[in-house]
Design a protein around this nucleic acid. Sequence first.
DNA 1: GTCATTTATGAAAACGTTTTCATAACTTGA
DNA 2: TCAAGTTATGAAAACGTTTTCATAAATGAC
Lengths: 342, 342
Amino acid sequence: MSRTKKNQESTILDIAAALQLSPATISRALNNNPNVTPATRKKVTEMAGQLGYRRNNMALGLRNNKTHTIGLIVPRISMFFHAEAITMMQNALYEKGYNLIISQSNDSPEMERRLVDTMYSSRVDALIVSCTLDTQDFSHFDVFADNDIPLIFYDRVPPAFDGALIIRGDDFQGGYLAGTHLAETGCKRIAHISGPLTTNLYRDRSAGFFKALKAAGLPVYEHLVFYQPLTYDNTRTALKKMFEHREKPDAVFTANDTAAIAVHEFARENGLEIPRQLKIVGYSNDPRCAIIRPAITSVEQFPGKMGSKVVEALMQMLAADRETALNEPITIPVQLIRRMST
Amino acid sequence: MSRTKKNQESTILDIAAALQLSPATISRALNNNPNVTPATRKKVTEMAGQLGYRRNNMALGLRNNKTHTIGLIVPRISMFFHAEAITMMQNALYEKGYNLIISQSNDSPEMERRLVDTMYSSRVDALIVSCTLDTQDFSHFDVFADNDIPLIFYDRVPPAFDGALIIRGDDFQGGYLAGTHLAETGCKRIAHISGPLTTNLYRDRSAGFFKALKAAGLPVYEHLVFYQPLTYDNTRTALKKMFEHREKPDAVFTANDTAAIAVHEFARENGLEIPRQLKIVGYSNDPRCAIIRPAITSVEQFPGKMGSKVVEALMQMLAADRETALNEPITIPVQLIRRMST
DNA sequence: GTCATTTATGAAAACGTTTTCATAACTTGA
DNA sequence: TCAAGTTATGAAAACGTTTTCATAAATGAC
């Protein structure tokens, strides 16, 4: 591990001094500016290499008012959906020469607010956001719209936001597919465990589901519908209540996969045979659904596709002059993945 | 969504002009410098709010040669271990006033090299890295050590690196625990599916495992040991080979959980009863291990703990003057989580 | 060989902060 | 009231680039 200690990070001025040239020429040479002699360019790049020169992005950003950095705020990167989407975005952005600053709100609106401020101070060239489940007030994002900095919401989005682009999965359709599928397999009393209706996701999934039930001529049983944070424990409690009731469900549609897995375990523990006695449909197509036995039917959201769509739209926004674009919301189709649980 | 368009991002000079004060005073007021009159401070903060002022971090970074940004390079954020560790780091760093730039090498050494360069250009205050499986040459990290920028490797680390801190799980002990445990449950022919030996992780896990076998007086069967990328498909192929052999294994220790799950599925498909006919131990304690039935025994690495340790060490490095510190490697203990598969 | 044109280079300003040094304005103690 | 300290403010330089404008050098046309 032999290394030569260089105590100074070298700058464009060092190269200029070493070569008896002006910093302007060095800058031009390094940026492939056409009117600089090939000979000089060669000398410059060689000296740059020799001095271990690397451009200082801070100075560049200050000068050009561009950071080539995109901010991203998600509730949690460990969620399968987000991990996939982020990976796709990051790779695509990197190829375009952009860095991504990822941060997590941990589903806390307060944290989200702070992060938005930090992102603005860092002068990101654009901001991509998937909101907190509880974000009701979206005014902290105004600073981006006000300053014409591209802003994209995806997945968990505000109902509408002037000056931002909205990209989301077709949650209504997802709920509808789930409901229709369960109805077609002959279920009569279909329970529904949804998340809090403060977010678009669950509102739409539920709406689609109910529409499917109605279309199939099935009733909605009040005691079989829950709106609550979709944790493992919450789901267990809900199930316990349901099964204490006289009219027990013969199927459950949960608005995420963690809940679906909770249902699965509950069924196993209580000797309910899946799918004969209880059918299950989850949402998101988390890999865990495919591993558990019997495997769980779920709604695929194509996170990677959503990620590429976000980047694609973003590139357009960055290229376009302010007046164009900021188009209509974009919706990504979903697909029901049938497995053994139904 | 009513907003007032401000076409100019306001600076400290705007505040100064509006208040008939010098930029120096504004800066002081905003930074809680003690010698500025409370009255002035009040006026300044009020005006700042009114003008929607937010400090420009680029300018700050250029001036102070500090970005308050930490770089992170991991193979893949979707891996459970990394997602957990990152979350912990990010939260801890944020509280200390640092931003985190996360990026993924996708296990490509070439990409890793490019990312290191980008991170350097972005003048991160420190770099945290978990290497590629195939990173053999670590010279691209020299630029950090050369310029005395704190550098921390964790999990997948170089054998040694002058000028960097190394934090890793106790992989040797993990392998040892797995081997001992299987020996104690009475297994005689224990197979081992490991990853490529290019990385410390698998070298150490395997070494620990073999040591345990030796201690228990068990032989190592050549035909039951595999070193290969630990994908689902590779594992299936390896198993097929093993079970075509006359002396079939009665247990498998895989060096990650994806492989363990592949073994699990193979067993089920081939009518091998777990744990009676085949016992399984995985590595990482991925949540999937707990969901599958029978649940898989695995080695817990405490990713969160490793994350906090990284940040803790980093803070020390950032505070210390160059001469102190850059201490000995740190090892995080592991723990065998026993489940139904053994 | 001269003049006009192109081409390569340099000087200097700008981006938005912070900080050193200097100075003006206040206190305080006799 | 005055000298001696404090305290609050300002002026200017610095961080490392890029870019406009100017100019020197080189080329080409006659």
